[in-house]
Design a binder for these strands. Structure first.
Lengths: 202, 202
DNA sequence: CCACCGCTACCGAGCGACCGGTAGTGCCTG
DNA sequence: CAGGCACTACCGGTCGCTCGGTAGCGGTGG
């Protein structure tokens, strides 16, 4: 048995890995334009100079491609926590993330579209967002606790405020995508931080 | 000339109007389950005991049906401002809206799914949400000004805080739809109001 | 009274486009 | 020459929408 395992999928070489990343980036663009349901494999394939069937050589199904997109975002999330080393982000770093997002409308559009779709029945991205929210709320609570302890200046606990920070980020993104001129996402986020702590300049 | 032309569309009698409302409600359900793109006219038609062609008798295109759904929401919005008489809502009334929403998950799901889809290119609901945000931010600023004047306790202006209130409402809905047990939408919203004014119980 | 008319309501059949996915084949390179 | 890679060809299915038609109902005039 020279070729036993290879349990699932096709083995890809180094060149294949580069191709896969190229495909995932193209998929994010198409999803930003038409959502996941509206995104056709053919449209993604065309962006990287393949036929739809050639694309299926790298990702055996459309859902596999979606999972690769979500996985890539997880890796970026880890990259955003630059300080890494296990410590929670600082509040100042969250401002940096919002500012960076304001220059990446395509990516924000991709994940806002996916977030919206994911509330529909049996959507393949639903488990991802459910778990992601759970994790992000926990991380945000840790960030708040590192900055202010068990009680924020308002008297609220980190666990009470964490969902609000997450909600503000998501909610501002939708308003900003619909009216980039009329909504200043980083400024609004900083205003929100002033609600949390009028003293902090963050 | 007893029967002048009736410029566009089909005229419907009282019975037809009731049928149309029935269809719009069914459409909202299907959109909640599968989004607008994923919602097929046949699925909506089946819910009201029609064929797809029979449905098209009432709404000549899928987009016309979507517009009817959005229009119905506008009418509800007007109904939520019970006090009507032109005055802005009170902050206490906004809490009531959030509490009511926590018992209408189907409708929240419908419009969260549509909001997500609407950020994609040339989506037929994009103008609706763009305009809605503009209007809701304005109304919310008026509500805040009526309660606190030109400066809120934090020193922020109503125009700075209004987008945050809207963002909190939208953002909490997504978290709540993904984890109804783990997210208490009305409680979180009240916590946010305490950030705005620690004294107010609202 | 009833034949006729116009209108609303609805359906069967089908069109053209597009969808995700399968099967089989061959090139090209390590 | 083996295998990663990409193709052609094709399948079954779904989509929104059109076309053409048929009921039934309410009014109207001979």
């Amino acid at each position: 048995m020279p070729n036993p395992p290879r349990p699932h999928g096709v083995r890809h070489g180094a060149r294949g890995q580069a191709r896969r990343e190229e495909i995932v980036r193209a998929a994010m663009e198409v999803i930003a334009e038409r959502g996941y349901r509206g995104a056709s494999l053919a449209a993604v394939a065309e962006k990287v100079g393949l036929t739809q069937q050639g694309l299926l050589h790298y990702f055996p199904s459309k859902e596999d491609l979606l999972i690769a997109v979500l996985t890539m975002r997880d890796e970026w999330d880890r990259g955003d926590r630059v300080s890494s080393d296990g410590n929670p982000m600082t509040v100042a770093q969250t401002v940096g993330v919002v500012e960076a997002n304001a220059h990446r409308s395509a990516i924000i559009r991709t994940f806002s579209a996916l977030l919206g779709e994911s509330v529909t029945e049996d959507h393949p991205a639903e488990p991802y967002f459910r778990e992601r929210y759970r994790r992000v709320r926990g991380e945000m609570a840790a960030t708040l606790r590192a900055q202010w302890g068990d009680r924020l200046p308002s008297g609220l606990t980190p666990e009470e405020v964490a969902p609000l920070v997450v909600a503000i980020m998501d909610g501002l993104q939708f308003q900003w995508l619909h009216d980039p001129e009329g909504v200043d996402m980083p400024a609004s986020f900083r205003a929100f931080l002033r609600l949390i702590d009028p003293e902090a300049l963050a």
